[in-house]
Design a protein around this nucleic acid. Structure first.
Lengths: 123, 123, 123, 123
DNA sequence: GTGGTCTAGACCACC
DNA sequence: GTGGTCTAGACCACA
């Protein structure tokens, strides 16, 4: 999977999002050891400093823990991970609703448009 | 209506979105003259240059036309306005779907979460 | 024939060009009386002041003369008109050559491209 | 090479044209890094903001890409550059033809006048 | 009065 | 160092 970095948004921000996704979707399992900063940086084709910063900020969320000598690990608290996933989803749906309200689109239409777009399989 | 500017995103970008919304929702009618740059700048509490930039970029969408000495006018092509509204809505729904897919959330869940959140009336 | 005014360029400038064209192409004959300022302004759908300014500037070229009481007349000096036409054409061709040189296009290519475009009848 | 800015036309517009020329004529090679905004501004003897605006608008053409922290780069798509050059040339020749038609000059004359002017080497 | 342009100078985030 | 944004204030042409 390519990293698809967009040069118009802060790189570190995109790295945070990507690693977080990999965690909440189970791509990295609870308790699993993450690749080293250098490895991840190589994979993402970014400067190690930038990856370092991203991981450091991720730690504040509690999703990953650093063991000074042995590396970084995904939290083994599965509940925490599920909660993070819920929060991300909730944020998305609220954003959707808010933006549609700005366009004066009714709740019914919001649901219909979603259903229709999903059916079409349009990306 | 306050302008609710968020200092974390470019102001001119938010101005564009706001004026566009005012147009597609009929707050400014087709063919209507917009307030002058200076007036709008005062309303939004931003520098006239910033508002100027926003309006200039808005012009590329064709939603507004500029008459150099008499002001800016909303296009009188109602179809164009409706189309713009559709596009905005489509972009929103696609973004929602894409983000949820990243979280490996199924289409069914996307719809259930939307329905549930709408019911709760949660903001 | 519509006047095709472009709101992004000074109106009076476009009026000058248009009336000058009408003269050098014989649309208004040598010695002929021009319509009144008010009439022309109506035809062009512009403010009479603007048309007034355009005609005033045209006078400096010698192509039209004002008779204080009876109106404005195209010069009856056919040579002067022909010369103006030549000058306009020369300016065009020199502009073309200059611009193409900026693109590092050779004289041969300038001629070939012109010939080809004329053949196609492309507008 | 001096920048030859004409005070009667918007400076940023001339900057756009100039940089675009430098790209399509190979003065700046595909994939090459452009000088920084500040450097170019100094070279052209304009305010950095003005140069910034020009480059920002140039980006919409796809001829240059911006990497937020490392600078701007000419696209490495040589085809795109050639296409841009063609379009610029086509625009010029069409403008020439259109203007000459307005003067009611025949296609034959358009070609003769071009040939004659090129021979004379008149600037 | 309108929009448009330009300068000067400051500050920011990012790498 | 890079690009990006914003402000303040000035001036211009046009109608």
């Amino acid at each position: 999977m390519p990293w698809n970095l967009d040069s118009k948004r802060p790189i570190y921000e995109q790295l945070i999002e990507r690693v977080m996704q990999d965690i909440v979707t189970g791509n990295y399992k609870p308790g699993e050891k993450l690749p080293s900063v250098r490895e991840l940086a190589t994979l993402a084709a970014v400067n190690p400093n930038t990856m370092q910063r991203a991981l450091a900020e991720l730690e504040t969320s509690g999703l990953i823990n650093t063991q000074r000598t042995s590396g970084r690990f995904v939290t083994d608290d599965a509940g925490l991970i599920q909660q993070a996933r819920q929060n991300l989803a909730l944020t998305q749906v609220r954003t959707y609703i808010y933006q549609m309200q700005q366009l004066q689109i009714t709740p019914d239409e919001m649901q219909q448009l979603l259903a229709k777009t999903l059916e079409e399989g349009t990306l």
